[in-house]
Design a protein around this nucleic acid. Structure first.
Length: 595
DNA sequence: ATCGCGTGCCAC
DNA sequence: AAACGTGGCACGCGAT
């Protein structure tokens, strides 16, 4: 703890060693250079396209960059939702500089983390991980003794066990050897006969598959292996429910054991991931200062204008079912305080509706209710008929005295169709193709293409808009967000991807970037709100379409209402979009409770 | 020991 | 050739 600065204002004076105690220095050396709590603009990092990069903790020295960029910004026209508004320097003055200042405040504020809770769940997680790991090792070592000491986290070792001697279908010519030696950490302090224990030991792994011909045509990869165990529900003695591994290991009891062992392997890995990525780092001193608050760095350094967060990245904490140890429960309000957690509903889809001016989508949002159900209805005639004949309900708001809906809900009666519609809603903005869908749904490409056509059937404006973005990127090498941020694509290639890849990115960038614009405006609106400030509420974190504030519990409800208002009308108290902005907000004691 | 890179996986 | 966009980061492993 002595290495941790008392507060953030001391950080700038400290050396990298004292700040980051261990070896957490990035390869670009960002941490070490400047850690400054004063707003310092960092503009146009060479390797990024978007206009402004801004951060307190990650800033490099920037006055020079600022001057050179000012002229660059002044030379670029600013088009706000289709209307000329001056230059991008005006945009910078009005939005980005205040936003940057706000990010600095949020970084300083930090989020309170319950480290006692984390250490409790760490014990449980470690025990469960070890249990699963032992289960797998015990099984595998029946076929290959040294598997007892293998590193379950090593892809190479796992692949060697399951695919020894096999040629990789995806990379013809590459064949794994029958057996291979690995150097592994000697965690279990196993001393070879007559020798003292050493830090490493060498093990020899050979194939454990009994009937390799069963899986001969599949590819040598972890993805393939993942599909092997398909475990039946408990107490179901239906052999056919077991997956590939059942056959591969000779069926019967041995086959079942194999399925359970492989499941244990992936369970081990997923628990290990939770421990090493979240539970452990969140407890480390060099991130969390003594008051127990964690200060991540919030950066505007993405291609689309979203924020990114690092050291630690608080934007990828496990959510929902994947959060088996309820990690989000460790993010709490200070005593006497509460959190307001507010998020937009289907923000990117609403943006897409606005940008494309798609009547069907705009109508669906105007009608309210379950958007995915409405999409399913518009896609399938038989569902439309059922709705017209009042055989199913699109959505249902229970009246007092009613316990269940008079007729089935669409999402129950046509669950499969709604799931498809929902997946399409999420995928289309990303540029997903029929091929990708066919893989996901395990149907032919033609069938996937037909389903895609159904989605686009009443959304012609979307295809037209996507076509226009492709033209834009071809003609001007740029596409634009709602507020006029641009994403530049030099030479129609980026990150080594193909022309098609650029087109997908060009379709996605305005949607993702405009959503980021809305989120930024909402945060500025919240920051400008005098009442929230008087009541003592502070923004702590943004996760793309979600914001978290902390303040006194007694005013939590008031604050919640104000936040909803700010987010619904994020453009100086108005909403310039053609769609409503739906906001869901909760007053809670921990992040987990907001689910 | 330390690096750079590839892979996999967490989020929205 | 690839087939879903934007991120951060832990880990293994070969090279230095």
């Amino acid at each position: 703890m002595t290495d941790v600065p008392k507060d953030l204002s001391e950080i700038g004076k400290a050396s990298k060693k004292t700040i980051f105690g261990k070896k957490k220095i990035r390869k670009d050396g960002a941490e070490g250079k400047i850690v400054n709590v004063e707003p310092v603009e960092k503009l146009q990092r060479e390797d990024r396209n978007m206009w402004i990069c801004y951060s307190s903790r990650d800033s490099m020295n920037t006055l020079k960059l600022y001057e050179s960029l000012k002229s660059k910004l002044e030379a670029k026209e600013w088009i706000f939702d289709g209307c000329p508004r001056g230059t991008m320097y005006d945009f910078y003055e009005e939005y980005l500089r205040p936003f940057g200042a706000l990010l600095v405040k949020m970084e300083r504020e930090g989020m309170l983390v319950d480290r006692g809770y984390l250490s409790e769940i760490e014990k449980i997680a470690v025990a469960e991980r070890n249990l699963a790991a032992d289960k797998f090792r015990k099984w595998a070592s029946k076929y290959c003794p040294d598997a007892k000491y293998m590193n379950i986290n090593s892809d190479a070792q796992i692949l060697q066990l399951f695919f020894a001697g096999r040629e990789n279908r995806d990379t013809p010519g590459e064949t794994l050897p029958q057996s291979k030696t690995f150097r592994v950490p000697n965690d279990q302090s196993v001393a070879p006969e007559g020798k003292r224990t050493s830090k490493f030991r060498t093990i020899k792994l050979c194939g454990i598959v009994e009937n390799p011909e069963v899986t001969f045509s599949s590819s040598v990869s972890l993805d393939t292996l993942k599909t092997w165990p398909e475990l039946p529900d408990q107490d179901v003695e239906e052999v056919s429910l077991y997956g590939t591994a059942y056959e591969v290991f000779g069926g019967g009891k041995k086959g079942k054991e194999a399925c359970h062992a492989i499941a244990a392997l992936f369970e081990t890995r997923s628990i290990a991931k939770l421990i090493s990525s979240f539970i452990v780092p969140l407890q480390e001193d060099h991130i969390s200062c003594k008051e127990g608050r964690i200060h991540c760095s919030l950066n505007i350094n993405t291609e689309t204008g979203r924020l990114s967060a690092r050291t630690p990245n608080l934007q990828n904490q496990p959510a929902l079912e994947k959060d088996r140890y309820k990690i989000r429960q460790a993010f709490v309000a200070a005593p006497g305080n509460s959190l307001v957690v507010a998020d937009y509903g289907q923000l990117e889809l609403r943006i897409l509706a606005h940008l494309t001016n798609c009547k069907s989508m705009l109508d669906a949002f105007k009608a309210g209710g379950d958007f995915h159900s409405r999409t399913a209805m518009n896609m399938y005639e038989h569902i439309r008929d059922a709705v017209h004949e009042k055989k199913v309900l699109l959505e249902w708001h229970p009246q007092p005295g009613q316990e269940k809906p008079p007729v089935p809900l669409l999402k129950d009666a046509f669950g499969a169709e709604r799931r498809k519609a929902k997946m399409l809603n999420f995928s289309i903005a990303y540029g997903k193709t029929a091929k990708g869908l066919s893989d996901d749904w395990k149907v032919t490409v033609d069938e996937a293409r037909d389903t895609l056509k159904l989605w686009y059937r009443d959304r012609k404006e979307v295809s037209a808009w996507q076509k226009r973005q492709k033209e834009l990127v071809r003609e001007k090498c740029e596409v634009y967000t709602l507020l006029g941020r641009s994403r530049h694509f030099p030479n129609m290639t980026h990150a080594g991807s193909s022309k098609k890849g650029v087109e997908r990115a060009a379709i996605n960038a305005p949607v993702q970037g405009s959503a980021a614009d809305v989120a930024m405006c909402a945060m500025l609106e919240i920051e400008r709100n005098v009442r929230l400030k008087e009541l003592g509420w502070r923004l702590l974190l943004q996760v793309h379409d979600e914001v978290i504030l902390e303040g006194p519990t007694e005013s939590a409800e008031t604050a919640r209402a104000i936040v909803v208002e700010c987010m619904s009308k994020p453009f100086y108290g108005t909403n310039i979009l053609k769609v409503e902005l739906a906001v869901d907000a909760k007053c809670v004691k921990s992040w987990y409770a907001a689910k």
